[in-house]
Amino acid sequence: MKFTDSPVIELSVSDTLLSIQQDNGSMHVGTSVWPCSLVLVKFAERWKFAAADTPNPYAEELLSFGNKRGVELGAGCGAAGMGLYLLGLQDIIITDIAPVMPALKHNLKRNKGALKKNLKTAQLYWGNEEQIKSLKPPFDYVIATDVVYLEETVGPLISAMEKLVSDKGVVLLGYQLRSPEADKLFWEMCCGVFEVHKIPHQHLHPDYAYEEADVYVLRKQNS
């Protein structure tokens, strides 16, 4: 499920409107906006700005973005990275593979007025050790949304997450089942490396609580 076939998706984040262009004619999945990126951003926004009298299990620790470093994996059109930047994760590197970089850079340029700066980007193939090292890990936050859909990329993805996230950091994962085989392998491997916490569905933003999409928090075991 794509979010919409509309060529432009608008996402309001912290009173700022992002305008994200997708290419419905492309043969690459990275040039479309997938729902999990929006679900993750709006979850973070909901609890970042929850009313003072609302019990908030996330704001002080999980969503305390100030002076923290972040990296987004498989960013596609950049919706999640841009959204979390607007929510305070202002030291963030947004990454994807070479065929997707034109779409990513186009959308960052398209939203420069809203972002007030050029966000950092880098090419990253998850199995490329040199590219991982060049990002200068560790990071407080690793962001990944809708990245589990090919069985052969699961191992490199989890390895990259493990190498990039700090011992006390978190992986914020927007997830939707795309492939039963990839799904099974991902969670089998993930549970060998990370402690996995699923955000209760009722804690997602009510306007972005799609039945198919979930948000998970991954932390290194024994950290």
Rank of each mutant, 00 (worst) to 15 (best):
P7M: 03
V8P: 00
S12E: 14
I20L: 12
D23G: 10
M27P: 03
S37P: 05
S37C: 12
L40W: 08
V41F: 13
V41C: 12
K42M: 13
K48Q: 10
A50W: 06
D53E: 13
P55M: 04
P55L: 09
Y58A: 14
A59S: 04
E61P: 00
S64G: 06
R69A: 05
G70W: 05
E72Y: 14
G76V: 02
M82D: 01
G83D: 02
L84D: 06
Y85L: 09
L86F: 07
G88Y: 09
I92G: 04
T95V: 14
D96Y: 07
A98T: 14
V100P: 00
M101V: 04
K105W: 01
N107E: 01
T121E: 03
A122C: 08
Q123V: 15
N128F: 04
N128Q: 04
Q131P: 01
I132S: 04
K133W: 09
S134Y: 03
S134L: 02
P138S: 11
P138A: 07
D140Y: 03
Y141E: 00
V142C: 08
I143C: 08
T145H: 03
V147Y: 01
L150K: 14
T153P: 00
T153K: 04
V154T: 12
M161K: 05
E162V: 12
E162W: 03
L164P: 01
S166N: 09
S166V: 15
V170P: 00
V170C: 11
L172R: 04
L173T: 08
Y175H: 11
L177D: 14
L177S: 13
E181N: 07
E181G: 05
D183P: 02
D183Y: 12
K184C: 13
K184H: 12
K184E: 11
M189H: 07
G192Q: 15
F194E: 00
I199S: 02
P200I: 15
H203G: 06
D207T: 10
A209W: 07
A209N: 12
Y210L: 15
E212R: 14
S223Y: 05
S223L: 05
